[in-house]
Amino acid sequence: MSVRSATGGSGPGATVPVPYRVVRRTRQTPDTATLVVEPVDRALPRFAPGQFAMAYAFGRGEIPLSASGIGEDGRTLEHTVRAVGAVSAALHDSAPGTQIALRGPFGTAWDLARARDRDVLVVAGGIGLAPLRPLVHALLRDRSAGRSGGRLGVLVGARSPGELPFADDVEEWSARPGTHVAVTVDRPGPRWTGEVGVVTALLERAPFTPGRTAAFVCGPEVMMRAAARDLAHRGVAEDRVQVSLERTMHCGTGHCGHCQLGPLLVCRDGPVAGYDRAGPLLTYREL
């Protein structure tokens, strides 16, 4: 149900990383930044929304990062990174001008074909909005170009108003006609006048017809399970609910074995997978 990457092979970009230069760095939240990068020389093949890169911080190591933005030229990429370990902290701190190196694109993409002329729900939890952002851009492009009908709902849950990633984008999307954008937070500050609660609570008021809806969900696994359960309960078919899975990645090319989730190699059969496939696997403890 997911779209398999058309790229492959073995040349530079698959195993050997390709240098990229940080051209801009935007602080998203206190521990999260978005790096806009462009190739120093040759570019990796074009990323599709949902695919990821292995991002290398010189001398530190490499981590998987979904593309949070894909330049129209196919060369510029955005990666949003949260400083949680040595490598992610080094990438997070990369100032403009810093060179990093990328491999990819790896993994499956959000399957836009399954959303054509359907109501679409994009459900994001925290930094989970990052891999969904290029998808929202593609959905908005398709709708404004008349390539797809259906309503678009973007539902975002964040820890606090200050930890809402891509706040400017969210603001901009909500101004688009035919687009329903809702944000909820766990911990409102004194000046927050928006909703408080879990992101699934936003489904109650999102405009969609369950029988003709496709949903794209990314966030902590607990949140994705809850959202997928809720969507199914409301009548959205499980094979129309796509989630983005997270497991350890070392190679990205299906050879190292770290990212297994039962029958899936998440770097190859994911990260995007239909909930009809992923859901049953997520019911097993420590699979």
Binding site: P12, T15, V16, P17, V18, P19, V40, F58, Q99
Partner: peptide, 17 residues
Amino acid sequence: REWTADREADGRITVRA
């Protein structure tokens, strides 16, 4: 060993398979 990388004084990275 899969590759080696060197960083020049100007921050430029070279990766050699």
